[in-house]
Design a protein around this nucleic acid. Sequence first.
DNA 1: CCTGGAGTTGTCCTA
DNA 2: TTAGGACAACTCCAG
Length: 471
Amino acid sequence: MTKNAVFWLREDFRVKRNDALTYATLNHENVSVVYIFKKQEFEKKREAKQWWIYKSLLNFEKDLDNLNINLEVILSDSYESTFDKILQYKNFSIYWNKIYEPDFLKFDEKIVLKLGKKNIPYKIFKGNVLNEFNEVKKNDNTPFKVFSPFWKNAEKIYLDKGFSRDSLPKKRTSKSKFLKEYSKKEDVFKPANWQDKFSEYWDPSEKEASKILKKFLSENIINYGDQRDIPSVKGTSRLSPYLASGQIHVETVWEECEKLKVKKRGYRKFINELGWREFSYSLINYFPEMLKQNLRKEFDNFPWTENKKFLSAWKKGLTGYPIVDAGMRELYETGWMHNRVRMITASFLVKHLRIHWKEGEKHFQNCLVDFNSANNTAGWQWVSGCGADAAPYFRIFNPILQGEKFDKKGSYVKKWVKELKEIPEEFIHKPWEMKNKIQNFELGKNYPFPIVDHQLARQSALKAFQQIKKN
DNA sequence: CCTGGAGTTGTCCTA
DNA sequence: TTAGGACAACTCCAG
C-alpha cells in the first residue's frame, strides 16, 4: 500500500456511507480529499448549483476537519489537464465513487488507462444509486422503457442484494497535505450574485440532510400521498439537492424508510420517487443520445416555435397565469420548485407556448440547486411527450384548473406573486375575469394579461401533435 | 410466438 | 352537480 491516498471528491459531500473515502482512510496513512472545480461547467450554466457546491465545500471542510483530513480544491479548465498534473505526484493511490452520466463514465475509463500506465493504484466505487444501471435489465438483456416493470424488477434486485454498509471513515491522527498548490475555496464562487438569498432556504450540509430526512419520516411521510401535490404545504421531502450533491446516500434514505413501523400509502409513493431517480439514470445511460435530442424520433418533426418574448416572460414569471408565474419565481428566489409546479410550468412552456423543451431544460439547469442531468432531461422529455413512458400528448395541463385544484386558496400564488396579494380567492387563478376594481391593482399594469389564451393554445398544441403523427 | 393488459402526476364534454 | 367515457393508438412487458 502506498503511504498517501487521494479521495477524488465529486458528488459525495458526505462522511457517512462514502465508500471511496472510507476505503482510503482504512488503508492509508495519509489521506487527502481533492475537489476539482471546472468553472466553465458552472458559470452562466449552473449558477444555482455553483452556489450549492461552494457552500458544500465550506461545510464539508469542517466535517473533514474533525477527521483530521484536508480538503484541497483545484480550479481547472479541464479535468484531463488537471489530472495530468496530479499524475506527476509519486507514491499515492486514488479512489472515487462513480457518477452515472455517460461523460463521467467515459472519463473514468480514460483516467484508468493513464493510471495503469503509471502504475498508480486506484479503485472506483459504486455511486449514489440503489442499483447500478446495468444491473437492471429485462430477461432478453435489453433495458426497460416503462417505469412500472422497471421499478418492480429494480426493487427486487436491490432487496435480494440485502446488504447494509453503514460505513464511516477512520479519523487521522494528524493532518496531511497532498497538493503543493491548491486554490482558495472562495475562488469557486463570487458572492453577491442572485443566488445569495438561497442561504435563507438551504443549508448544504450532511447534518442538515439527515435532519430533514428524520423530520420528513416522522411528520410528513404519512400524508405524502395527498400533501405532496399542494405546493403551499411542505409535503415533499425536499431532499433532492442533498441527493444530487451526495450529502446523503439514497441507500440511507431507503433504509430509514424501511425502518418505519407503519407503512402506509405515503411510504409507497415516496419510495417510488426514488425509483424515478433510478429510472432516469438507467435511461440516460442506455440511451445517452437523449441528453441532446428527443428519445422518440417522431418528435424531431414537431413544429416548435421560437419566441424570445414568450421565453423571457416564462423565465421571469410574467405569463399572466398565476400558478405558472408563482412557480417560476419560487425557482428564481430559492433555487428550487415544487414538483407539481415543475410539471405545470414545464407543460406551459412546451404546450401552451410551444417552445422547445431544451430551452426549459437549460433554464432549470441554471436555476436548480438540485440539478441533475438524468432527472432534468428525463423529466422534460416526459412532460413533452417525447421521452420514455411519457405523458400522452392530449394531456395538457390547464393552468387555471391546476391552480384551483392544488392551490385552492391561492396561498402559494400570493406567497410568490406579491402583486396578486389582494385578489379575492375566486379570481386568484384567473384575475382577468375579475369585474370589481381593486385598489392599486390594474391588470396589464401591475400584472400582465395572459400572454396566450388557454383554449386557443390548447387547440394549437393538439393540432401540432396531430401533425407529427402524419409524418 | 402469440396475447392481453397496462401505461405517474389530465381535461373536457356529455348524459 | 357529478360520474364516466373519450381523447389514439402504440409500445412495452410478462405469461
